[in-house]
Simulated assay, not measured.
Amino acid sequence: MHTVWKGAISFGLVHVPVKMYTATEDKDIHFRSLHKDCGMPISSVKTCRHCDKEIGADEIMKGYEYEKDKFVISKEEDLESIRAEAEKTIKILDFVDLNDIDPLYFQKAYYLSPDLAGAGAYNLLLEAIKQTGKIGIAKISIRSKSSLAAIRVVDNCICMETMYYPDEIRSLSQVPNLPKQTVVNERELGMAMTLVEQLSEKFEPRKYTDDYRTALLELIEQKIAGESVDVVFAPTAEGRSNVIDLMAALQASLDVTKPLPESSPPKSKRKNAAKSKDNVS
Rank of each mutant, 00 (worst) to 15 (best):
S228G: 07
L126T: 01
E80C: 04
K145E: 06
E65W: 11
T194V: 05
P176V: 02
E25N: 06
K139V: 03
G7V: 07
A192P: 11
L116A: 12
L254T: 08
I137A: 09
C48Y: 07
L178S: 08
H2M: 10
A237R: 06
E221T: 04
C38N: 06
L189T: 05
A121H: 04
N123W: 00
S141C: 12
L246A: 11
S241E: 15
R213N: 07
L195Q: 06
A121C: 03
I244C: 01
H35S: 11
H30F: 15
Q107M: 12
Y64M: 09
G226M: 14
R32A: 00
S44T: 04
G118Q: 11
E262N: 10
Y212T: 04
S44Q: 15
D97Y: 01
D28C: 04
A138H: 04
L219Q: 09
V232K: 13
M160H: 05
G190F: 02
E186F: 05
I82N: 00
Y208F: 10
T89E: 07
S141R: 07
F233S: 10
N185Q: 13
F95M: 14
I224M: 10
K258H: 09
D100R: 09
E54F: 00
V154P: 01
N156V: 15
Y111M: 08
R32N: 09
E76C: 00
Y105R: 13
K130D: 12
M160S: 09
I90R: 00
M61N: 01
V153Y: 13
I151C: 04
V153L: 06
L250G: 11
K258L: 00
A150G: 04
L199P: 01
V243R: 15
Y165Q: 08
F203A: 10
K223F: 01
P114A: 06
A8H: 12
V231Q: 06
P166Q: 05
S74Y: 11
M40S: 14
Y21K: 04
A149C: 06
E25F: 02
V96E: 15
R32F: 00
I73D: 01
I140L: 12
M61I: 13
E168I: 04
N279Y: 10
L116H: 08
L219M: 04
N156E: 14
P17H: 09
F233W: 01
E65V: 03
R32K: 09
N99K: 11
R270C: 02
R240F: 02
E85D: 08
D58L: 01
H30K: 09
E54G: 01
A119M: 14
V72P: 01
H50D: 05
A149L: 05
T132Y: 07
S74N: 08
S281C: 02
L260N: 03
H35K: 14
S241H: 10
R152K: 12
E85R: 04
D52I: 02
T236R: 14
N279T: 13
D69M: 03
S264L: 13
D78S: 08
P259C: 02
